[in-house]
Amino acid sequence: MARAWNISLACALALAMAPVQAAEIDDLAAKAANQQPVLWYESSQPEQIADVIKAFNKTWPKIRVQYVRIPGGNTIAARIIQETQANARTASIMTSGSTQLHPLLERKLVLSRDWQALGVTKDMPQTPYAIPVAASMFVGLYNSQKISAVKAPATWDDFISKRFEGKLGTWVRPPGFVDLVELYGEDKTRDLLKRLVSLKPLLFPAPELIAQQIASGELDAGIGFFHSSQPAIESGAPVAVKFLDPTPINTIWGVVIEKGSNADGAQVLAAWLTSPEGARIYEDATKRGNPWLKSTETAKRVGANRISQLPLMDLDKNRRLSDEFSKILSDVRAVP
Protein backbone atom coordinates (compact mmCIF):
# COMPACT_ATOMS: atom_id res chain seq x y z
CA MET A 1 0.00 0.00 0.00
CA ALA A 2 2.78 2.33 1.00
CA ARG A 3 4.64 1.48 -2.23
CA ALA A 4 1.55 2.38 -4.30
CA TRP A 5 1.33 5.68 -2.46
CA ASN A 6 4.97 6.40 -3.17
CA ILE A 7 4.54 5.67 -6.86
CA SER A 8 1.45 7.88 -7.03
CA LEU A 9 3.28 10.66 -5.25
CA ALA A 10 6.27 10.35 -7.56
CA CYS A 11 3.98 10.46 -10.62
CA ALA A 12 2.17 13.50 -9.30
CA LEU A 13 5.45 15.26 -8.59
CA ALA A 14 6.81 14.36 -12.01
CA LEU A 15 3.68 15.73 -13.67
CA ALA A 16 3.87 18.88 -11.62
CA MET A 17 7.59 19.36 -12.36
CA ALA A 18 7.38 18.59 -16.08
CA PRO A 19 6.10 22.00 -17.20
CA VAL A 20 8.72 23.72 -15.00
CA GLN A 21 11.49 21.62 -16.57
CA ALA A 22 10.09 22.18 -20.04
CA ALA A 23 9.90 25.91 -19.40
CA GLU A 24 13.52 26.06 -18.22
CA ILE A 25 14.95 24.07 -21.08
CA ASP A 26 12.80 26.04 -23.54
CA ASP A 27 14.15 29.29 -22.12
CA LEU A 28 17.71 28.06 -22.48
CA ALA A 29 17.04 26.82 -26.00
CA ALA A 30 15.51 30.18 -26.94
CA LYS A 31 18.65 31.95 -25.68
CA ALA A 32 20.88 29.48 -27.52
CA ALA A 33 18.99 29.67 -30.80
CA ASN A 34 20.86 31.17 -33.72
CA GLN A 35 23.90 31.90 -31.54
CA GLN A 36 27.35 30.71 -32.52
CA PRO A 37 27.55 26.91 -32.68
CA VAL A 38 27.93 24.73 -29.63
CA LEU A 39 31.43 23.23 -29.83
CA TRP A 40 31.56 19.60 -28.75
CA TYR A 41 34.83 17.76 -27.93
CA GLU A 42 34.83 13.97 -27.71
CA SER A 43 36.79 10.96 -28.91
CA SER A 44 34.19 9.23 -31.10
CA GLN A 45 34.37 9.15 -34.87
CA PRO A 46 32.90 12.32 -36.48
CA GLU A 47 30.41 10.30 -38.53
CA GLN A 48 29.05 8.68 -35.36
CA ILE A 49 28.52 12.05 -33.72
CA ALA A 50 27.08 13.49 -36.93
CA ASP A 51 24.13 11.10 -36.48
CA VAL A 52 23.68 12.31 -32.91
CA ILE A 53 23.76 15.99 -33.91
CA LYS A 54 21.28 15.33 -36.70
CA ALA A 55 18.83 13.77 -34.25
CA PHE A 56 19.39 16.57 -31.72
CA ASN A 57 18.60 19.15 -34.39
CA LYS A 58 15.27 17.46 -35.07
CA THR A 59 14.24 18.46 -31.56
CA TRP A 60 16.25 21.69 -31.35
CA PRO A 61 16.71 22.86 -34.94
CA LYS A 62 17.94 26.32 -34.06
CA ILE A 63 20.90 25.22 -31.96
CA ARG A 64 23.87 24.61 -34.19
CA VAL A 65 26.51 22.10 -33.08
CA GLN A 66 30.06 21.61 -34.33
CA TYR A 67 32.11 18.58 -33.41
CA VAL A 68 35.84 18.13 -32.91
CA ARG A 69 37.25 14.67 -32.41
CA ILE A 70 40.08 14.43 -29.89
CA PRO A 71 41.40 10.87 -30.41
CA GLY A 72 41.87 8.81 -27.30
CA GLY A 73 40.06 11.47 -25.33
CA ASN A 74 42.92 11.98 -22.88
CA THR A 75 44.02 15.39 -24.17
CA ILE A 76 40.61 17.08 -24.20
CA ALA A 77 41.15 18.88 -20.90
CA ALA A 78 44.61 20.08 -21.93
CA ARG A 79 43.17 21.50 -25.11
CA ILE A 80 40.35 23.31 -23.32
CA ILE A 81 42.79 24.75 -20.78
CA GLN A 82 45.16 25.97 -23.49
CA GLU A 83 42.34 27.56 -25.46
CA THR A 84 40.83 29.16 -22.40
CA GLN A 85 44.17 30.57 -21.29
CA ALA A 86 44.56 32.18 -24.72
CA ASN A 87 40.98 33.51 -24.68
CA ALA A 88 40.36 31.53 -27.86
CA ARG A 89 37.15 29.79 -28.81
CA THR A 90 36.90 26.54 -26.89
CA ALA A 91 34.58 23.61 -26.32
CA SER A 92 31.24 24.34 -24.75
CA ILE A 93 30.57 20.67 -24.04
CA MET A 94 32.91 17.79 -23.40
CA THR A 95 31.84 14.17 -23.10
CA SER A 96 34.62 12.16 -21.52
CA GLY A 97 35.78 10.17 -18.51
CA SER A 98 36.34 11.49 -15.01
CA THR A 99 40.10 11.95 -15.52
CA GLN A 100 39.35 14.75 -17.99
CA LEU A 101 36.81 16.39 -15.69
CA HIS A 102 39.09 16.85 -12.71
CA PRO A 103 41.71 19.19 -14.24
CA LEU A 104 38.87 21.37 -15.52
CA LEU A 105 37.20 21.41 -12.12
CA GLU A 106 40.48 22.34 -10.46
CA ARG A 107 40.70 25.36 -12.76
CA LYS A 108 37.04 26.30 -12.22
CA LEU A 109 36.22 26.05 -15.92
CA VAL A 110 33.12 23.90 -15.51
CA LEU A 111 29.60 25.26 -15.41
CA SER A 112 27.66 24.24 -12.33
CA ARG A 113 23.87 23.97 -12.35
CA ASP A 114 20.81 22.05 -11.23
CA TRP A 115 20.50 19.44 -13.94
CA GLN A 116 17.23 18.04 -12.71
CA ALA A 117 15.66 21.38 -13.57
CA LEU A 118 16.52 20.51 -17.17
CA GLY A 119 14.82 17.14 -16.92
CA VAL A 120 17.80 14.94 -15.97
CA THR A 121 16.41 12.13 -13.86
CA LYS A 122 17.57 11.98 -10.25
CA ASP A 123 18.11 8.21 -10.62
CA MET A 124 21.41 8.93 -12.33
CA PRO A 125 24.58 9.64 -10.38
CA GLN A 126 25.27 13.28 -10.98
CA THR A 127 26.90 16.38 -9.61
CA PRO A 128 26.23 20.02 -10.48
CA TYR A 129 29.28 19.74 -12.78
CA ALA A 130 28.63 16.54 -14.65
CA ILE A 131 25.88 14.24 -15.83
CA PRO A 132 26.33 10.69 -17.12
CA VAL A 133 25.82 10.47 -20.88
CA ALA A 134 26.94 6.86 -21.29
CA ALA A 135 29.47 4.36 -20.04
CA SER A 136 32.27 2.24 -21.44
CA MET A 137 31.74 -1.28 -20.12
CA PHE A 138 34.81 -3.38 -19.38
CA VAL A 139 34.06 -6.92 -20.56
CA GLY A 140 35.62 -10.25 -21.36
CA LEU A 141 36.06 -11.16 -25.04
CA TYR A 142 36.96 -14.47 -26.66
CA ASN A 143 37.25 -16.10 -30.06
CA SER A 144 34.05 -18.07 -30.51
CA GLN A 145 35.60 -20.35 -33.15
CA LYS A 146 38.46 -21.40 -30.94
CA ILE A 147 36.45 -21.63 -27.74
CA SER A 148 33.01 -23.18 -27.67
CA ALA A 149 30.24 -21.56 -25.65
CA VAL A 150 30.39 -24.46 -23.21
CA LYS A 151 34.08 -23.98 -22.48
CA ALA A 152 33.90 -20.19 -22.63
CA PRO A 153 35.39 -18.27 -19.70
CA ALA A 154 32.68 -16.73 -17.55
CA THR A 155 34.38 -15.09 -14.58
CA TRP A 156 37.38 -12.84 -13.95
CA ASP A 157 39.37 -15.84 -12.75
CA ASP A 158 38.40 -17.84 -15.85
CA PHE A 159 39.79 -15.14 -18.11
CA ILE A 160 42.94 -14.59 -16.12
CA SER A 161 44.05 -18.21 -16.01
CA LYS A 162 47.08 -20.18 -17.24
CA ARG A 163 44.92 -21.46 -20.06
CA PHE A 164 45.37 -18.13 -21.85
CA GLU A 165 49.09 -17.62 -21.25
CA GLY A 166 50.48 -15.72 -24.24
CA LYS A 167 47.04 -15.71 -25.84
CA LEU A 168 45.44 -12.86 -23.95
CA GLY A 169 45.24 -9.16 -24.76
CA THR A 170 44.18 -6.02 -22.98
CA TRP A 171 44.42 -2.23 -23.07
CA VAL A 172 47.67 -0.62 -21.99
CA ARG A 173 45.71 1.78 -19.75
CA PRO A 174 44.25 0.49 -16.48
CA PRO A 175 40.93 2.35 -15.92
CA GLY A 176 38.87 -0.83 -16.08
CA PHE A 177 40.88 -2.37 -13.25
CA VAL A 178 40.83 0.88 -11.28
CA ASP A 179 37.02 0.89 -11.39
CA LEU A 180 36.90 -2.80 -10.53
CA VAL A 181 38.43 -1.91 -7.13
CA GLU A 182 35.16 -0.41 -5.93
CA LEU A 183 33.48 -3.81 -5.60
CA TYR A 184 36.41 -6.22 -5.87
CA GLY A 185 38.64 -4.47 -3.37
CA GLU A 186 42.18 -3.19 -3.82
CA ASP A 187 44.12 -6.30 -2.85
CA LYS A 188 42.04 -8.68 -4.91
CA THR A 189 42.19 -6.43 -7.98
CA ARG A 190 45.95 -5.88 -7.60
CA ASP A 191 46.45 -9.63 -7.40
CA LEU A 192 44.26 -10.11 -10.47
CA LEU A 193 46.28 -7.57 -12.41
CA LYS A 194 49.59 -9.13 -11.41
CA ARG A 195 48.33 -12.53 -12.46
CA LEU A 196 47.24 -11.01 -15.77
CA VAL A 197 50.72 -9.56 -16.37
CA SER A 198 52.34 -12.90 -15.52
CA LEU A 199 50.40 -14.41 -18.43
CA LYS A 200 52.41 -12.19 -20.84
CA PRO A 201 49.40 -10.50 -22.42
CA LEU A 202 49.65 -8.31 -25.51
CA LEU A 203 48.95 -4.71 -24.47
CA PHE A 204 47.35 -2.45 -27.05
CA PRO A 205 47.49 1.34 -27.20
CA ALA A 206 43.88 1.36 -28.47
CA PRO A 207 41.35 -1.01 -26.85
CA GLU A 208 39.58 -1.42 -30.18
CA LEU A 209 42.44 -3.56 -31.46
CA ILE A 210 41.80 -6.30 -28.91
CA ALA A 211 38.64 -7.56 -30.62
CA GLN A 212 40.33 -7.41 -34.04
CA GLN A 213 43.29 -9.41 -32.79
CA ILE A 214 40.91 -11.97 -31.29
CA ALA A 215 39.10 -12.11 -34.62
CA SER A 216 42.36 -12.70 -36.48
CA GLY A 217 43.28 -15.59 -34.20
CA GLU A 218 46.31 -13.80 -32.76
CA LEU A 219 44.61 -13.87 -29.36
CA ASP A 220 42.21 -16.39 -27.87
CA ALA A 221 40.72 -13.96 -25.38
CA GLY A 222 40.98 -10.47 -24.01
CA ILE A 223 39.73 -7.92 -21.54
CA GLY A 224 38.41 -4.85 -23.32
CA PHE A 225 35.49 -2.55 -23.86
CA PHE A 226 32.10 -3.66 -25.10
CA HIS A 227 31.67 -0.78 -27.55
CA SER A 228 35.11 -1.16 -29.09
CA SER A 229 34.46 -4.82 -29.88
CA GLN A 230 31.29 -4.02 -31.80
CA PRO A 231 32.78 -3.07 -35.20
CA ALA A 232 34.44 -6.50 -35.41
CA ILE A 233 31.36 -8.34 -34.18
CA GLU A 234 29.01 -6.44 -36.49
CA SER A 235 31.16 -7.28 -39.49
CA GLY A 236 30.78 -10.98 -38.68
CA ALA A 237 34.03 -11.66 -36.80
CA PRO A 238 34.02 -14.67 -34.45
CA VAL A 239 34.23 -12.61 -31.28
CA ALA A 240 31.96 -13.18 -28.32
CA VAL A 241 31.36 -10.87 -25.37
CA LYS A 242 31.01 -11.92 -21.75
CA PHE A 243 29.77 -9.42 -19.18
CA LEU A 244 31.66 -10.26 -16.02
CA ASP A 245 30.48 -9.80 -12.48
CA PRO A 246 31.27 -7.25 -11.21
CA THR A 247 31.28 -5.19 -14.41
CA PRO A 248 33.65 -2.21 -14.20
CA ILE A 249 32.39 0.81 -16.05
CA ASN A 250 33.98 4.05 -17.04
CA THR A 251 31.27 6.71 -17.16
CA ILE A 252 31.28 9.22 -19.98
CA TRP A 253 30.35 12.47 -18.28
CA GLY A 254 28.66 15.38 -20.02
CA VAL A 255 30.40 18.54 -18.88
CA VAL A 256 29.59 22.11 -19.91
CA ILE A 257 32.46 24.59 -20.09
CA GLU A 258 31.47 27.93 -18.66
CA LYS A 259 33.40 30.04 -21.17
CA GLY A 260 32.70 27.77 -24.12
CA SER A 261 30.89 29.08 -27.14
CA ASN A 262 27.11 28.99 -26.64
CA ALA A 263 27.12 27.41 -23.19
CA ASP A 264 23.32 27.69 -23.10
CA GLY A 265 23.03 25.46 -26.14
CA ALA A 266 25.57 23.09 -24.60
CA GLN A 267 23.36 22.65 -21.53
CA VAL A 268 20.40 21.80 -23.74
CA LEU A 269 22.53 19.28 -25.61
CA ALA A 270 23.88 17.73 -22.39
CA ALA A 271 20.39 17.38 -20.95
CA TRP A 272 19.08 15.91 -24.22
CA LEU A 273 21.89 13.34 -24.26
CA THR A 274 20.67 11.99 -20.92
CA SER A 275 17.04 11.80 -22.06
CA PRO A 276 15.73 8.41 -23.22
CA GLU A 277 15.70 9.66 -26.81
CA GLY A 278 19.18 11.21 -26.71
CA ALA A 279 20.65 8.20 -24.91
CA ARG A 280 19.19 5.81 -27.48
CA ILE A 281 20.56 7.81 -30.42
CA TYR A 282 23.97 8.15 -28.75
CA GLU A 283 24.04 4.45 -27.97
CA ASP A 284 23.07 3.50 -31.54
CA ALA A 285 25.83 5.72 -32.90
CA THR A 286 28.70 4.96 -30.50
CA LYS A 287 27.64 1.63 -28.97
CA ARG A 288 28.09 3.20 -25.56
CA GLY A 289 24.85 3.31 -23.67
CA ASN A 290 23.64 4.75 -20.41
CA PRO A 291 23.35 1.96 -17.81
CA TRP A 292 21.17 4.14 -15.57
CA LEU A 293 18.43 4.42 -18.18
CA LYS A 294 16.48 1.18 -18.22
CA SER A 295 15.44 1.75 -21.83
CA THR A 296 19.00 1.41 -23.14
CA GLU A 297 20.44 -1.80 -24.52
CA THR A 298 23.41 -1.35 -22.20
CA ALA A 299 21.21 -1.51 -19.11
CA LYS A 300 19.65 -4.70 -20.45
CA ARG A 301 23.04 -6.23 -21.21
CA VAL A 302 24.41 -5.55 -17.76
CA GLY A 303 21.36 -7.32 -16.37
CA ALA A 304 21.82 -8.53 -12.85
CA ASN A 305 25.59 -7.97 -12.83
CA ARG A 306 26.90 -5.50 -10.31
CA ILE A 307 28.32 -2.27 -11.71
CA SER A 308 31.69 -1.31 -10.27
CA GLN A 309 33.00 2.22 -10.49
CA LEU A 310 35.00 4.49 -8.22
CA PRO A 311 32.94 7.47 -7.07
CA LEU A 312 33.37 10.49 -9.38
CA MET A 313 34.79 12.75 -6.72
CA ASP A 314 37.19 10.19 -5.20
CA LEU A 315 40.02 11.79 -7.11
CA ASP A 316 42.96 10.87 -4.90
CA LYS A 317 42.15 7.18 -4.86
CA ASN A 318 41.57 7.18 -8.60
CA ARG A 319 44.95 8.81 -9.29
CA ARG A 320 46.85 6.64 -6.82
CA LEU A 321 45.45 3.41 -8.22
CA SER A 322 45.86 4.57 -11.82
CA ASP A 323 49.53 5.35 -11.21
CA GLU A 324 50.15 2.04 -9.50
CA PHE A 325 48.22 -0.10 -11.98
CA SER A 326 49.82 1.68 -14.95
CA LYS A 327 53.19 0.78 -13.53
CA ILE A 328 52.19 -2.87 -13.11
CA LEU A 329 50.85 -3.05 -16.67
CA SER A 330 53.55 -1.17 -18.53
CA ASP A 331 56.75 -1.20 -16.53
CA VAL A 332 59.41 0.15 -18.88
CA ARG A 333 61.86 -2.42 -17.57
CA ALA A 334 59.46 -5.31 -18.01
CA VAL A 335 61.30 -6.77 -20.99
CA PRO A 336 65.10 -6.57 -20.94
Partner: peptide, 13 residues
Protein backbone atom coordinates in the same frame (compact mmCIF):
# COMPACT_ATOMS: atom_id res chain seq x y z
CA UNK B 1 56.41 9.97 -24.49
CA UNK B 2 53.22 8.71 -26.10
CA UNK B 3 52.19 7.21 -22.79
CA UNK B 4 53.04 10.43 -20.95
CA UNK B 5 50.94 12.39 -23.43
CA UNK B 6 47.97 10.05 -23.66
CA UNK B 7 47.83 7.75 -20.67
CA UNK B 8 48.44 10.03 -17.73
CA UNK B 9 45.96 9.11 -14.99
CA UNK B 10 45.98 12.74 -13.82
CA UNK B 11 44.07 13.73 -16.94
CA UNK B 12 46.59 16.16 -18.40
CA UNK B 13 49.46 15.11 -20.63
Amino acid sequence: IYALANDNPRGLP
